[in-house]
């Protein structure tokens, strides 16, 4: 009897307190569910890269995951294939060129759009945003026919020029965002403090777009380096960029050499991403506590 009463009192007492606990448990369950879902999506997003990296280390002569044993044999194998090295050098050269040129063009065009009136400015602005939307395959075939019309033979230069269409809109956009964050009166203040026009640009304007410029340059670098669709139309069999080389290799081969090349490309992209992240971070932290 006493036990029953005790249980009753215990239940009665726990009831009001029970509710928030239940809600807390529900909240925790929901948070866990959310985290599990996010982890799944993350796995989905990263899986292909992780698999590529892992299977490049396999000792088997065919691609398999998980890899059987661990070896760097396939990376050594790469050195015996000069065509991959040539392609890598071509790709990196074109990418570096595209990065430098599109950064310069992006800075100039961004400045022009941001602060000078000129005829056709709004058209230019709109073209920069629509250049993202045109399918690269259509652009590729268009460039193929246009270059033929102009009688321009395939060369690293034609490829670089083609890549500018992909990269310049991004650098312009980044520069514009940087300039939008610049207080125009800071430039007037600098002039008022005795700075000549080039000094104003160097000390005030350029620092405001430095982050966007570096991020834009590295974005252009990997966009050009990774591009396949445009390159497929613009290159010849003698001049193949690394993605084109892999794409063609894949048609006939299925060995871990490709995963080794892929891993090299991923590492290359990762370096660029870290730099972009750093720079954008620096831009975000402009004026923030250095101790943080």
């Amino acid at each position: 009897m006493t036990t029953a009463t005790e249980t009753e009192t215990a239940t009665a007492a726990s009831k009001p307190a029970g509710k928030p606990i239940a809600a807390g448990a529900g909240g925790r369950a929901r948070r866990l569910l959310g985290a599990a879902f996010a982890a799944l999506v993350g796995l989905f997003l990263l899986a292909p890269v992780l698999v590529t990296i892992a299977s490049s280390l396999t000792t088997t002569s065919y691609v398999t995951f998980p890899p059987k044993g661990l070896t760097l044999h396939w990376y050594a194998e790469l050195l015996n294939r000069p065509e991959f090295l040539d392609s890598f050098l071509l790709s990196i050269g074109v990418a570096a060129g595209a990065a430098v040129v599109s950064t310069a063009l992006g800075l100039a065009a961004g400045l022009a759009i941001h602060r000078y009136p000129f005829p056709g400015k709004s058209v230019l602005d709109r073209l920069f945003s629509s250049a993202f939307a045109v399918p690269t395959i259509v652009l590729g075939i268009g460039l193929l026919q246009w270059y033929a019309q102009l009688g321009m033979a395939s060369s690293p230069l034609t490829l670089l020029l083609a890549h500018l269409v992909l990269t310049v809109p991004y650098t312009v956009r980044l520069v514009l965002a940087g300039l939008a964050g610049l207080d125009r009166s800071a430039e007037l203040a600098a002039a008022g403090l005795g700075a000549k026009a080039p000094q104003v640009f160097w000390h005030v304007t350029l620092p405001a777009v430095r982050g966007p410029l570096i991020a834009g340059a590295f974005f252009a670098l990997i966009t050009s380096f990774d591009d396949l669709t445009i390159a497929l139309f613009v290159v010849t069999t003698d001049m193949q960029t690394l993605p084109v080389r892999i794409f063609n290799y894949l048609q006939y081969n299925y060995d871990p050499t490709v995963t080794a090349v892929g891993t090299v490309m991923v590492l290359f992209a990762a370096v660029a991403v870290v730099i972009i992240e750093r720079v954008v971070g620096v831009a975000h932290l402009f004026g923030a506590d250095p101790e943080h």
């Binding site: 207080d183 800071a186 203040a189 403090l193 000094q199 405001a208």
Partner: peptide, 17 residues
């Protein structure tokens, strides 16, 4: 830049970097 004026702007116009 060749005048000697000290100006304080509404936004202060400090150089953020």
């Amino acid at each position: 830049n060749r005048r000697a004026m000290g100006m304080v702007f509404q936004s202060y116009a400090l150089f953020p970097h």
